[in-house]
Design a protein around this nucleic acid. Structure first.
Length: 749
RNA sequence: UGGGGAUUCGCCAAGUGGUAAGGCACUAGCUUUUGGUGCUAGCAUUCAUAGGUUCGAAUCCUAUAUCCCCAUCCA
């Protein structure tokens, strides 16, 4: 974990190292208005995972500030999910509603500071006054109310003297802010509604932007991690805490990309729609991407956590392939779960030369799973095999039973087809077969070679079970809504057959039905009289893939076309400057272009030019290095002067330093404002150009990396850069790169 | 359209001036009494595009393109 950590952990580590926080405190802050889904699992893994990794703590906090949508059934679901995933939130679950009194006090404080006011505009007016993304808004006439009036009004709002919507409390920030969120955001609204925890005590409820940052602060949260859509809210987050003067180790917000998985939907609204429209059986329908759904389906917490680890954390919107999740559950179950024989679509086989019965001893686990355990499988004259496992006219590469091809009954004997019995419609009704007595698994002396072993059950002893075959809920890779539902997402097989030990011995609740997939005894509907198994996931099936791929047409991969826009044209002054740069000073067009278009840059350049007559070198450093600093700062805020830049360039020009060192010195100048010559002197950064000094270092590097020398000699010329880099590194960047390049190339010839 | 983010293989994702990690998917071969598993090998001369700086650029500079978020009294 020390290597390749995600950007959040990098931030946490830096903050810990710098002493910004003594301890890491995170929180998982869901709103209890829906069941948690696998996207929440990602957030849970991040927040609790980071806390675990750095010996900190993670709170589970219900963000229950909207009484009209929230409910206690959802807080139970949330707790279940976190617990099931194996995380510990400590003593108590936290609730934002517990902080309502404190939050109220903070609001009063803000009013007293003149930073918040009671607005009495209607909802529509507020929207109108807010302006648009391109137009500034205008402030409400109520914004001028006195502190006393605001205090009085706010207190009466709290007491319930006004109707819903009559007044709101707003922060007084900036109605023309480019960030729409900062246009006097609402802090409190009146809601005469029953809160599932706070009851009827409050007539006003805080808004997310006010409650969240303060709740984090109250709980001593250090890193407030949320999803990308809250990036714009960060300004309010900081404003509230800063304005209230909440300084000591106050929390900071960091955003990551939420999880998207193809062939599924993740928004609470769409999930609720699925439940309400009864397209699924409930929040825990095994096809749902809810944690309850995966759990009911048979997924393990380990597999979900592993999935969250594998997909990583970053800031780019992404859509993870559902195959990645399926891999995780297969991978987990492979080493854990007993293998048993089941037949979903039975075809009767009568073994004509077999009399009586016997019990075959068979291990539950294959040779590559180091677990103990076995059961007896009854064998008799009448058995069932999978309908798929016999074909009269097989395609090439078909390994199973055919009129001419024998097959092994898994753990049992090899059988040969003797006769195919058909019903009046021409469907295969039964196979008459013969077994080879000397071919029993483990004691095979028959010498018969078969290409595969198939699952089977004994007709008399097999148990009938219900099997629910689940497939992806949506047929579309990026489903919009209910219209994209996969009509075959659930297939119920009422009369599947299974070997008796599964039912009588119950060795586990999850199984691999050999050659079919992983299955889970449904935790709700399973009874001894009527066992029910859910399909968790199929096995990888390269045969099915092969047969399918011959039919499906490869979809054309459309390469995206790059559209190139045009650069805005220059005005007259810029054009004149550009011409002067290119013709008189011999700057290249690109550099001249950048300089001419930027007034600050060109004037800075002019100043340096008056001190040193080296137009090209100066232009390069101004355009490529100084420009970066000037992006965020004004000229007078800069730590360095034009004269110092001229000084720096002079040293490059006369060969005192290399341009690599120049960049290093420039960084130093940006930080400390020190003089370049002084830096060179202090750190002894004078360039080393004598081959006699460089040569031994190269020899050393070459001696240390025999592998790479061989690779280079084999034709990997990219490695030249590697050697040059190594030499430069050992000299602290001081070696003249040109000389090093030549020398290395020569030595490696 | 203003502001804020993002862009590295089919899908995720490391990398922050010196050899383009890893996982999934895919393709071969070996192993196998599961067409499973395991093992081995192959999968980016190139990092959205075009220029520039540099001995050397995914990384620094400039411009352009594309996608996502923001105008709920939701969170």
């Amino acid at each position: 974990m020390s290597k390749n950590k995600d950007f959040l952990r990098t931030i946490v580590e830096e903050d810990l190292k710098s002493g910004k926080y003594k301890e890491v405190v995170t929180r998982f802050p869901p709103e209890p208005n829906g069941f948690p889904h696998i996207g929440h699992a990602k957030s849970i893994c991040i927040n609790f995972g980071i806390a675990d990794d750095y010996q900190g703590h993670c709170n589970l906090r219900m963000d229950d500030t909207n009484p009209t949508t929230e409910d206690t059934q959802y807080v139970e679901a949330l707790k279940d999910a976190v617990e099931w995933l194996g995380f510990d939130w400590g003593e108590n679950v936290k609730f934002t509603s517990d902080y309502f009194p404190k939050l109220y006090d903070y609001a009063v404080e803000l009013i007293k500071m003149g930073e918040a006011y009671v607005d009495s505009l209607s909802e529509d007016e507020i929207r109108e006054y807010r302006g648009t993304v391109t137009q500034a808004g205008k402030r409400s006439k109520y914004a001028d109310r006195s502190v006393e009036e605001n205090l009085d009004l706010f207190q009466r709002m709290k007491k319930g003297e006004f109707k819903d919507g009559e007044h709101v409390l707003r922060a007084k920030i900036d109605m023309s802010a480019a960030n729409m969120k900062m246009r006097d955001p609402l802090l409190y609204r009146i809601r005469h509604a029953h809160h599932f925890r706070a009851g009827d005590e409050w007539a006003i409820y805080p808004m997310y932007d006010f409650a969240h940052c303060l709740s984090d602060y109250i709980e001593g949260v250090s890193h407030s991690i949320c999803t990308l859509e809250f990036e714009n809210n960060r300004d309010i987050y900081d404003w509230v805490l800063d304005t209230l003067g909440l300084k000591s180790a106050r929390p900071h917000q960091h955003e990551f990309a939420r999880l998207g998985i193809n062939y599924t939907v993740m928004s609470k609204r769409k999930l609720l729609e699925l439940v309400n429209s009864e397209k699924v059986s409930g929040w825990d329908d095994p096809r749902m991407p809810t944690i309850a759904g995966y759990r009911r389906r048979g997924y393990t917490p380990e597999s979900i956590i592993n999935f969250c680890d594998q997909i990583g954390v970053a800031k780019a919107n992404s859509m993870v392939d559902v195959a990645q999740l399926e891999f995780c559950i297969r991978d987990d179950l492979n080493t854990k779960v007993p293998r048993v024989l089941a037949v979903l679509d039975p075809l009767k086989v009568t073994i004509q030369n077999y009399e009586g019965t016997e019990e075959i001893d068979a291990p539950y686990y294959p040779h590559d799973v180091p677990k103990e355990g076995s059961r007896k499988i009854p064998f008799s004259r009448e058995i069932y095999i999978e309908r798929d496992d016999f074909i009269e006219n097989p395609p090439k590469d078909y390994f199973r039973l055919t009129p001419d091809q024998a097959v092994r009954l898994r753990h049992g004997y090899i059988i040969t087809c003797k006769e195919v019995i058909k019903d009046p419609d021409g469907n295969i009704a039964e196979i008459k077969a013969e077994y080879h007595p000397d071919s029993k698994s483990g004691h095979d002396t028959s010498g018969i070679k078969v290409k595969s072993a198939i699952q089977w059950v004994s007709a008399k002893e097999a148990k009938t079970v219900e099997v629910r075959l689940y497939d992806r809920l949506f047929k579309d890779e990026a489903p919009e809504g209910l219209e994209d539902i996969n009509p075959d997402s659930l297939r119920v097989i009422k009369n599947a057959l299974i070997e008796p030990a599964v039912i009588t011995e119950k060795p586990d609740e999850r199984f691999q039905f050999e050659r079919l997939g992983y299955f889970y005894a449904d935790p709700l509907d399973y009874t001894d009289e009527k066992p029910v198994f859910n399909k968790i996931v199929g096995l990888k099936d390269s045969w099915a893939k092969k047969t399918k791929s011959t039919q499906s047409v490869p979809k054309p991969q459309v390469k995206k076309v790059q559209v190139d826009g045009e650069e805005a044209s220059m005005d007259e002054v810029q054009q004149a400057l550009f011409d002067m740069y290119t013709s008189e000073l011999k700057l290249n067009a690109e550099v001249a272009n950048i300089l001419a278009r930027d007034e600050h840059l060109s004037s800075f350049y002019k100043e340096t030019l008056s001190l040193l007559n080296s137009p090209v070198s100066l232009a390069n450093i101004v355009v490529n290095e100084v420009a970066r600093e000037l992006k965020e700062k004004q000229v007078d805020e800069l730590n360095f002067s034009a004269a110092q830049i001229a000084e720096l360039v002079k040293m490059i020009d006369d060969g005192t330093i290399s341009s690599k060192i120049a960049k290093q010195i420039f960084e130093e100048m940006v930080q400390t404002g020190a003089n370049p010559t002084q830096i060179v002197e202090d750190k002894g950064l004078v360039q080393i150009s004598e081959p006699s000094k460089i040569s031994p270092i190269i020899d050393e590097v070459i001696a240390k990396n025999p592998d790479n020398v061989a690779k280079f000699k084999a034709g990997n010329t990219k490695l030249l850069g590697f050697f040059v880099g190594q030499v430069l590194k050992t000299t602290g960047g001081k070696a003249n790169p040109k000389v090093v390049n030549e020398l290395v190339a020569e030595k490696l010839k």
